[in-house]
């Protein structure tokens, strides 16, 4: 089995490039030997997160590290991988992952596949990559050394793992600046998994089990306008035309009928799971999976099952 190396970035000032959900997805999706490689400026604060991931982790620590220090990270990664005979380096499927992946592949002279969709790893790792918006995809058999970006989510079960913290020197500080977006502190805007509740949940109290479920799924909690208007949930968590537009990998809609004012804010989700008592509710037209039934009961059952 090809060993898997997952690259993460932990800059205490810039919340990008560190997805615990992807870490869990990699742990559960790939069968080979796995290791996380983390570049950080606050290793002592993040080490517990990785110590409970079940994946051996090496943290390269420098107090002056910033996410924009691309050259130093790439230089370190080159040093780590240049003499390895076999590896699959995995990065998050986002702009940062793509950028690092392509640069590292260029340095190492290996294949880079951005936005890999599916993979299989019997004797050889094979990934699929969709061709734009067409109904076709490329099937790409990877060589022994390859770099991919992939979106895979999972729920992390607490499991102790080996953590190594290594001091690391930074030589080339980049002459550029990171500017966060207006919504950058709102976890919901960038969540990979969202559990959203609608008026069908009935009361503010019903959002407590939903929050418990969000913890089990590594998800962020969202709501429809009907809910935030009632004051059951903070208005910053409203998904729809009047506030946030989201595009997570998985969107769970509980007690949401699917009015267009709401769906316009979530219809780009990759997978939609809907639960509603009304089988003719518009949300089921968008849903990939669903249950016709009481959302509160389904949330309770999911909390027991997961």
């Amino acid at each position: 089995m090809t060993p898997i190396y997952y690259i993460q970035f932990e800059d205490k000032n810039i919340d990008e490039g560190n997805s615990i959900s992807t870490l869990a997805g990699i742990k559960n999706n790939f069968s080979g030997k796995k290791e996380a490689i983390v570049f950080s400026n606050h290793a002592n604060e993040v080490k517990n997160k990785y110590a409970q991931s079940g994946i051996k982790t090496t943290i390269y620590q420098n107090n002056h590290y910033e996410l924009i220090d691309f050259a130093d990270v790439l230089s370190k990664l080159k040093e780590l991988f240049v003499n390895k005979k076999e590896y699959l380096v995995v990065l998050d499927n986002d702009n940062l992952g793509d950028s690092f992946g392509s640069r590292l592949a260029a340095l190492l002279g290996t294949v880079f596949v951005a936005d890999a969709q599916k993979f299989s790893e019997d004797n050889q790792v094979i990934v699929d990559k969709n061709i734009g918006e067409t109904q076709a995809f490329r099937r790409i058999p990877l060589e022994k050394k390859a770099i991919i970006t992939i979106a895979c989510n999972g729920v992390l079960k607490k499991e102790n793992s080996e953590i190594n913290i290594i001091d690391w020197k930074i030589k080339n500080k980049e002459n550029s600046t990171y500017i966060p977006e207006e919504n950058s502190t709102n976890d919901l805007a960038y969540a990979k998994i969202i559990v959203a509740g609608g008026k069908g949940l009935g009361s503010a109290e019903s959002f407590k089990p939903l929050k418990k479920l969000s913890g089990k799924l590594n998800a962020s909690v969202g709501a429809s306008k009907a809910v935030t208007d009632q004051g059951w949930v903070n208005s910053k968590r409203m998904i729809g035309i009047s506030n946030l537009t989201v595009s997570p990998d998985v969107y769970y809609a509980f007690g949401i009928s699917g009015a267009v004012q709401h769906t316009i804010g979530m219809n780009k989700s990759k997978c939609i799971v809907a639960v509603n008592t009304d089988k003719s509710a518009p949300i089921f037209k968008l849903a990939d999976y669903g249950i016709v039934g009481d959302a509160n009961l389904v949330i309770e059952q999911l909390n027991n099952l997961l």
């Binding site: 810039i14 990008e16 986002d94 980049e174």
Partner: peptide, 12 residues
């Protein structure tokens, strides 16, 4: 300007 998920990197 280089676009990341939650912000952008700017420079020359």
């Amino acid at each position: 300007e280089m676009k990341l998920e939650k912000g952008k990197i700017t420079g020359k």
